[in-house]
Amino acid sequence: MHTATVAHLGAGGFRVVFSAEESTATVPAPGNTAEAAVPEKSGPSPIAPEKYELIWALGAFVVFALLMRLFLFPRLKKGMNARYGKIRSDHETAESTRAAAESEVAEYQSALASVKAEAAGRIDVARQTLETERTARIAEANARIAVRKAAAVAETDAAMAAARQSIEAAVGSVAERATELTLGKRPDPATVQRAVAEAMRSGVNS
């Protein structure tokens, strides 16, 4: 038979023995449980505060609190504040440096833009000058070409006229001789010349 023996050790303590043998407990409890009565040991209340615990704990706390208030915390906090102040001032310095750098960049960009505008203006002026010069040179060249062309045309015309006269004279002479040989009398040179000139004109035109 399984039994459980409970023995009170006093002041909340107890001992439970589970056994498969018969219990040796003096006072059996309901069911399989037997309870052995042991006189209660007297002791201090587990809840009530003890005077010496109060004194030691209070003393330790008060010393800690005073040291913290007067020495430990102010020193630590002073260091923290100094570091935070330095970080804040470093941030402000970095911020002002960045602002100065940004203003310099803006200034540079504005100068660059004005230089670019000036360069573009100069390029435009140069381009216009070049264009004007080019136009003038082209006109001058065209004029020279026209003069030379006119001279060449005149020269060609003169040469053609001279050649025609020479040809007409030669053809007239040949025609006079041929007519003379054929008819036995010399034709009027003016008439031959006129006929040759008409024949050549019509031949050239046709």
Partner: peptide
């Protein structure tokens, strides 16, 4: 046999 002994409260919370 299996024995479980729970000491008195003053042994648990005092030294």
């Amino acid at each position: 046999m299996f024995a479980l002994e729970f000491p008195p409260i003053n042994e648990v919370i005092r030294w």
